[in-house]
Design a protein around this nucleic acid. Structure first.
Length: 904
RNA sequence: GCGGACGUGGCGGAAUGGUAGACGCCGGGGACUUAAAAUCCCCUGAGCCUUGCUCGUGUGGGUUCGAGUCCCACCGUCCGCACCA
């Protein structure tokens, strides 16, 4: 019972229902099978599934399905990272409730995901905005608080005085709120922090064990944590009235010091400013500087000599001027440094500008002259010079010596400074996890008792006025103090949404109603065997999740320390862009590539004004791209003339097949074929997954996501590419439905037998290595091999194995093929085919014969032929003799079963 | 500026130091068809004096019997960080 064509529109839903009915993808905690936890980063419910999600989840799905076929009990869950700002923005813009908006989005996106046939265990679906999730998060937060890992401290935030809200750094544009346009103020607020710095060392050391993480991500985290070892010590003025604590990673260069500099925000600078308007002016000048990358780069080094002189710790006779400098950061180290211009580029820039001494203390080869020439600091290795007792030591020895002496004389100590800050988790926002604390006039900050959890976010809130709706809710924040019973108020800050995503992988593994998770169940699933997501989460999300896992292990709730054994960061899905500068207002207008089709039209109206564009390129006529005229003065919805762009970039208007106008290059009407970039609404180059599933079926879309580009690189979307995938789906279907009867006397086909087993082994290895593009190529080869083969038992066997090989990637088609071939049950539950190791061994090999490293001939011989025979065969070749041209062979390189290279 | 990745046909890309361009897309030719779609077959890096030869993996050097692959320098593209003491 087979139809001519595979019809995804009926097959997809049919098999999705079958998997559902059989509970195929339900992970069983009680299963005797070994465990495999495959996880993709869960999405924010923005409204629509993006093609990038499709790529991400397809990769995870292939691995999860393959692992299941390999006999693993697979946990492959899906859920929603559903707290966050877009819901509040929608509430303000559209007058809807954040919860309603979010839940409607989840519903729509769930339907989209189901259309793709992903093998998710939907019974474990979770949504972080529901009390069933965030209530447990509050409980964990209280546990961390009890363990001393949560603190409250004053911290500066970006405050938008019009919207009455705190802004993230990314929301501050040119010093103004992105929505209100109001000048942003720095405000000090008492905020909640998680003590991630307490785990800085562990988080850094732990990276070393994450062998299956991309080096790039480990390096980014390492830099983010930013460990620096050095010496912290105090400079005093001769009269002991001023002391400046500095930190340096180069204590060895202490005899090259020529100034001390403090940040504009440093207490000493602030103190001086109070009594001296000139200092105050200078500090104001420093603050003016922008904070963007480009501004910092071009910013000049500025300094202000305070007039204060500090004495050198090793010799009171040496005095150093104390400057206030704009390049010193208050929030790193101690907010003060000593400058050694000869060996630090920043310091030499500063010293040259203010005429300070530049003394060489590390020899650059034979250069030992104390007078340092030039404007480029020497930061390389060398021996200490001009440094008294340090002379002759190498840099490392000198560092150790200075630290030892400082500690002995008690004016300094060896120390470690981190770039990593404690994690501020307070958000003055409505749509987040309420922080479970109560402020009492008498008792201070009191944790909400666990039996009163969850602290539920009220739904009846008002977004018509700016500010945090929790603040002005009539009843919500008013509670009695759990401690003394007096009237008190709830904390109205909510948790950073990164907290939600810092432990969701635990809740997926185990979700009892009465506690966050069951440690015994966690033990059998964690760590996640393979985590897949975007590189944009290389630092924050992945660092926070690692921290939470360690913190929970630290307080004994779990005993896994690293949540993700392997990490894979996939590339983006890109698409071409088309744009044009609108001559009217000078703004760039984008056109959707979906409106573009290739066709030939005359290159100019002059050339052939009445030619009808045909589908055929003829010589002398440019191949052009025709674009319907959305956005070029044509009202949407009307019948548009077309805009055609020849490959050279010149655009023309085509009406009813006639070129009526040319948008000349170099004029203000030029139309540009832009770069291939990430899909984005504003560039009008998005492709909606629903549209392409409807057109080609889920399997073709999945297959495209895996084809061609290596998964870590960007994948360029193309219409031709997805069409090719659709064709391959049909091709496989024809193979399976073609009824390949082997004639009784048909010759056997050992080559196909080998190809089949090579493919089974290769596809499996490629999937495990996440090299899906290679697995795809191997399946194409097997399909081609089967099609070319004459009827034989091997051909029947190869066809029979095809559904199982295709199942992880094209699950709906695979089920259909499996049943067409008489399979019972579900191929999704079938075992991955066995490999015959004997079939992987070739008994014949092709030997390359080279002369002087250049290929001259090949011979096919039995495997394992001895060297002498290979050599003789090589010399017997006519082509080789011609290449040798009578020259004597001086040397023969033989690589058995591979090649012979004759050196003449 | 610092750190990292990458550079192979018209395009996406294959290639444990050992036959460069697997596989796919595009393109060309043919078969089938009244015709089209679909499908199938063949060709498809460049050049040439075409039984074959020469050149060819960003550029220039090097190591090697042999380099897309290893080393050095440079050019270009992309990404991350950013005055971190």
């Amino acid at each position: 019972m087979t139809s001519e064509r595979f019809d995804p529109s009926s097959a997809d839903v049919r098999w999705q229902a079958a998997w559902d009915a059989a509970q195929t993808f339900r992970a069983d905690d009680a299963s005797p099978r070994p465990r495999s936890y495959v996880l993709e980063m869960f999405p924010y419910p923005s409204g629509r599934i993006h093609i990038g999600h499709v790529r991400n989840y397809t990769m995870g799905d292939v691995l999860a399905r393959y692992k299941r076929m390999q006999g693993f009990e697979v946990l492959h869950p899906m859920g929603w990272d559903s707290f966050g700002m877009p819901a509040e923005n929608a509430a303000m813009e559209q007058g809807v409730h954040p919860g309603g908006w979010t839940r409607a989005n989840i519903k729509a996106m769930t339907a989209q995901l189901k259309r793709l046939g992903f093998s998710f265990d939907w019974s474990r679906e979770l949504s972080t905005c529901e009390p069933e999730y965030y209530g447990h998060e509050q409980s964990l937060f209280l546990d961390l608080y009890a363990a001393g890992l949560v603190t409250r401290k004053e911290s500066a935030v970006n405050w938008d005085p019009v919207d009455m809200t705190v802004l993230a750094n990314e929301q501050v544009i040119d010093g103004r709120g992105w929505r209100s346009g109001a000048l942003v103020e720095k405000r000090k607020l008492s905020q909640w922090f998680l003590k991630i710095t307490q785990f800085a060392d562990e988080l850094l050391d732990g990276l070393g064990a994450l062998k299956n993480w991309p080096d790039k991500v480990r390096l980014m985290q390492e830099n983010w944590i930013g460990k620096s070892q050095g010496l912290q010590f105090t400079f005093w003025s001769a009269d002991r009235a001023t002391e400046v604590e500095v930190f340096t990673t180069r204590p060895d260069t202490i005899f090259g010091a020529s100034f001390v500099a403090i940040a504009a925000d440093h207490p000493i600078a602030q103190g001086l400013a109070a009594g001296d308007p000139a200092v105050a002016d200078f500090i104001a000048e420093c603050r003016k500087g922008g904070t963007t990358a480009a501004e910092i780069e071009t910013q000049e080094k500025l300094g202000f000599d305070t007039g204060i002189r500090l004495v050198h710790p090793f010799d009171p006779a040496i005095e150093l001027p104390l400057y206030i400098a704009n390049f010193v950061l208050m929030d790193y180290g101690t907010g003060a440094v000593f400058g050694c211009p000869a060996h630090d580029q920043r310091d030499i820039d500063f010293a040259r500008k203010y005429g300070l001494p530049v003394t060489r203390v590390v020899a650059d080869g034979d250069l030992t002259d104390p007078v340092f020439v030039g404007d480029e600091a020497y930061t390389g290795p060398g021996a200490l010079v001009n440094s008294r007792f340090l002379d002759g030591m190498d840099v490392e020895a000198a560092k150790a010596e200075v630290i030892a002496r400082a500690e002995q004389s008690q004016w300094g100590r060896g120390t470690t400074v981190w770039r990593l800050r404690d994690w501020g988790v307070s958000r003055q926002r409505y749509w987040g996890t309420p922080i479970p604390f109560i402020h009492c006039g008498d008792c201070g900050v009191v944790p909400v008792p666990k039996d009163q959890l969850p602290v539920v976010l009220p739904e009846d809130v008002d977004f018509s006025v700016p500010g945090n709706p929790l603040e002005r809710h009539p009843t919500w924040k008013h509670v009695d103090c759990p401690n003394c019973g007096k009237a008190a108020t709830r904390e109205t800050d909510t948790l950073d949404t990164f907290v939600n995503s810092s432990w969701y992988f635990l809740r997926f593994a185990s979700q009892p109603a009465d506690r966050p998770f069951d440690p015994e169940v966690i033990k059998q699933w964690l760590p996640v065997e393979q985590y897949i997501g975007g590189i944009e989460h290389a630092i924050l999300h992945l660092l926070y999740a690692r921290f939470w896992t360690r913190a929970l292990a630290h307080i004994g709730l779990i005993d896994v320390k690293e949540p993700f054994a392997s990490l894979f960061t996939q590339g983006m899905v890109t698409h071409e862009t088309y744009s044009r500068v609108d001559p009217g207002n000078g703004q760039v207008v984008y056109f959707s590539p979906s409106e573009i089709e290739k066709r030939a039209v005359p290159a100019s109206p002059e050339q052939a004004p009445h030619e009808t564009p045909s589908g055929i390129a003829t010589s002398g006529v440019d191949v052009t791209v025709a674009l319907t005229g959305m956005g070029i003065g044509v009202a949407q919805g009307s019948v548009s003339p077309e805009i055609a762009i020849p490959v050279t970039g010149q655009a023309m208007k085509v009406e009813q097949g006639r070129v009526t106008k040319v948008f000349k290059r170099g004029t203000d009407e030029e139309l540009n074929a832009g770069r291939v970039i990430k899909m984005s609404k504003s560039k009008k180059n998005v492709v909606d997954p629903d549209d392409i599933i409807a057109q080609y079926g889920a399997d073709a879309v999945r297959w495209f996501m895996l084809s061609d580009s290596p998964p870590e690189r960007d994948l360029p979307w193309s219409e031709a590419g997805i069409e090719g995938c659709g064709r391959f789906v049909q091709r496989l279907w024809r193979i399976a439905s073609g009824n390949p009867q082997a004639a009784a006397d048909a010759a056997s086909n050992p080559a196909l037998h080998k190809l089949m087993h090579r493919t089974i082994a290769g596809v499996g290895a490629d999937i495990e290595a996440l090299q899906f593009n290679k697995a795809v190529a191997k399946l194409y080869e097997l399909a081609g091999g089967i099609e070319k083969a004459a009827p034989s038992a091997e051909k029947i066997a190869a066809i029979a194995v095809l559904p199982r090989l295709a199942s992880p990637m094209m699950p709906h088609l695979a089920e259909e093929m499996y049943h067409a071939l008489g399979g019972t049950g579900l191929v999704a539950e079938a075992a991955w085919p066995d490999v015959d190791p004997a079939a992987l061994v070739d008994d014949e090999v092709t030997i390359a014969i080279q002369v002087l490293g250049k290929l001259r001939d090949t011979v096919t011989v039995a495997k394992g032929l001895p060297r002498e025979e290979l050599e003789a065969l090589a010399l017997a070749s006519e082509k080789v003799q011609r290449a040798l041209d009578g020259k004597a062979v001086k040397k023969v390189i033989v690589v058995p079963d591979r090649l012979v290279n004759l050196v003449a």
